[in-house]
Amino acid sequence: MNKRQNRFPVAAVPFLLWTVVFVAVPLLYILCMSFLKRAQTWGVVAEFSLDSYARMFTPTYLKVYAQSMWLAVLTTLFTLLIGYPFSYFVSRLPERRRSLVLLLVVVPFWTNSLVRIYGWMILLRSQGVINTLLIALGVIDTPLKLLYNFGAVLVGMIYALLPFMILSTYSAIEKLDPSLVEAARDLGAGRWRAFWTVTVPMTRAGIMAGCVLVFIPSVGLFFISDLLGGAKTMLLGNLIKNELLTARDWPMGAALSVVMMVMTLLVIGIYQKCSGERGLEGIL
């Protein structure tokens, strides 16, 4: 065998250290914390307990999970419905226009996402751009309640995560050999049949990657629902933040984090099953 392969990979040491110190240790810390008891005033008591996990199954918490999942599913669905056709048409543009459009998709990343969500607040509030415009045009008399509801959070989520869907699906659609679609048409498939039997299966990896890249953050993003949802829409991310920072119930926050990680792993597992990818190469 090749001797080189048996040598200790020196170049990997910094990365290994980084992973252990900043990923493995914190995760273990969270996992341990979730099995401890909350102290009366501050911090935790070093005593094994399943209290936090037991409390998770109360209706208040269950409602939050359900709402989080529902929002994540809707966000994924809408970004796919908007992003896939968008990517499809971009891939059919001439070369130079394509890179320009993709640049425009990425441009928002150059600004802080918090700032961009404040932008949405300006658009959506009662005296905001949309309401002012609609009243000026005489479409409505009184301002619509656009901000601080589930719809506003959904819009913000779709807005923030759409680029991930576009970039994932675009890279798959762009690689699709147009002659495959032509072959399907030639063999008797109408436009829709060719799309469903060739284009979609051939770009499935990109679709799955985009869904994972959108779904996972949309479970955990809390600032969007904080800003656009007011105090009404409570998501898993908000809940964790509140438990850790406001209620100072660290074991509870840790337990919720563990549950969220497990759910995320489940999603990745489903992704691997569906896309036939062994790792996450399709995403990266």
Partner: peptide, 14 residues
């Protein structure tokens, strides 16, 4: 009612 054999074959890889 015509069919084509493409230069790249264009077999469906999936």
């Amino acid at each position: 009612n015509v069919n084509t054999v493409f230069q790249s074959y264009a077999l469906f890889p999936h």
